[in-house]
Amino acid sequence: MVAGEASGDLLAGLLLGGLRQRWPGLTGVGIGGPQMVAQGFDAWWPSERLAVRGYVEVLRHYREIVGIRHQLRQRLLQGERPDVFIGVDAPDFNLELEANLKAAGVRTVHFVCPSIWAWRPERVRKIQASADHVLCIFPFEPALLAEHGIAATYVGHPVANVVPLEPDRQAARRQLGLPEDAEVVALLPGSRGSEVDYLAHRFFEAARLMQQARQGLRFVLPAVPAQRERIGRVAREAGVADLVQLVPGQSHAVLAACDATLIASGTATLEAALFKRPMVIAYNMNWLSWQIMRRQRLQPWVGLPNILCQDFVVPELLQEEASPQRLAQAVLDWLDAPERVRALQARFTQLHHELRRDTAALATDAIEALLAR
């Protein structure tokens, strides 16, 4: 297995739990993070080595990433070949590796369909050459892949089973040491170093502006271990080290505890939707990477909640629009609109039901059928 970042590690860890129930003697090796290691996975490389986003950023790490892929391919093919290879998201890394392994006779599964319905539709040809089977987390994806002769199974979104339909806000606040009656804003600037570099300072400046406009606001930021030191340094540089509470990980507790969140575009936005929390989605990246990416978009939305709802149910502030002033005002607008929040929560509850399936069992069934063939 290969998972290339914190969200992929979470998905892979949940899948490994289902695989181990079916095959207690299963051995898992490759690239992974702490959630996978907790399931007995042997991580030859840590997943954060692949956690890079953006064309320019990838180029800076290209030689290292390609070297890791080459070493992994050689190790898998020259040693005892795996019964199946599962690439978890990270399509730029995994699809190339899967194509090489498939050509050598190894069965391949790709978990999380690349968002060919949102951007880079040409990737469908790469999927055809790479994956024997695709495990899809959104219900409309298998039919889309079937049009191109790609076998796929809808398995639901694993996080939809982890997040309760009615999150306990007060229990989460007690866990984090937050006042039960305070207004709390969660700051989630992303789990990659490049995201922290481009977004954290903007988020901290927005927090300062929000605090000036609304005394008593509390801010909490769940920092993944690999980024905690970097985030702490940016907080000190921004002069908000005393204003923003940093907690190690615990992003789900933070989302459960908050009244609203300022959040980087990515998987975490779907998690925030499952927690029924109003959000402001932001993103900023290298200018050249953004120019390339914006030309490949197929939909007007970037955030997963908006894509799945096919509407701008939450604001998106991207690139130059993601100024501290606009970010702060968009979050404050949620705090001042309880009726709007309740309508959003109803829509997110409907979405939660649509995504809730026994993901581990459905995925394991599909993998077992592939192995039987």
Rank of each mutant, 00 (worst) to 15 (best):
L178M: 09
P179I: 08
D181Q: 15
G190P: 00
R192C: 01
E195D: 06
D197K: 07
L199W: 01
A200F: 10
R202N: 04
E205I: 13
E205H: 06
L209K: 10
M210D: 01
Q211M: 08
Q211L: 11
A213P: 09
Q215K: 15
G216Y: 05
R218P: 02
R218L: 08
F219T: 09
V220R: 02
L221Y: 09
L221K: 04
P225N: 13
I231A: 08
E237A: 13
A238N: 07
Q250D: 08
H252V: 04
V254F: 05
D259T: 12
D259N: 14
D259K: 06
A260L: 09
T261Q: 05
I263H: 02
A264C: 12
T267W: 00
L270H: 01
L270S: 03
A273I: 08
A273W: 02
R277A: 08
V280D: 02
A282F: 06
Y283K: 05
M285L: 14
N286G: 12
N286V: 09
S289V: 05
S289P: 03
Q291G: 07
R294D: 08
R295F: 12
Q296T: 15
R297C: 10
R297H: 09
W301V: 08
W301M: 09
V302Q: 02
G303T: 06
L304F: 04
L304V: 14
I307A: 03
L308H: 03
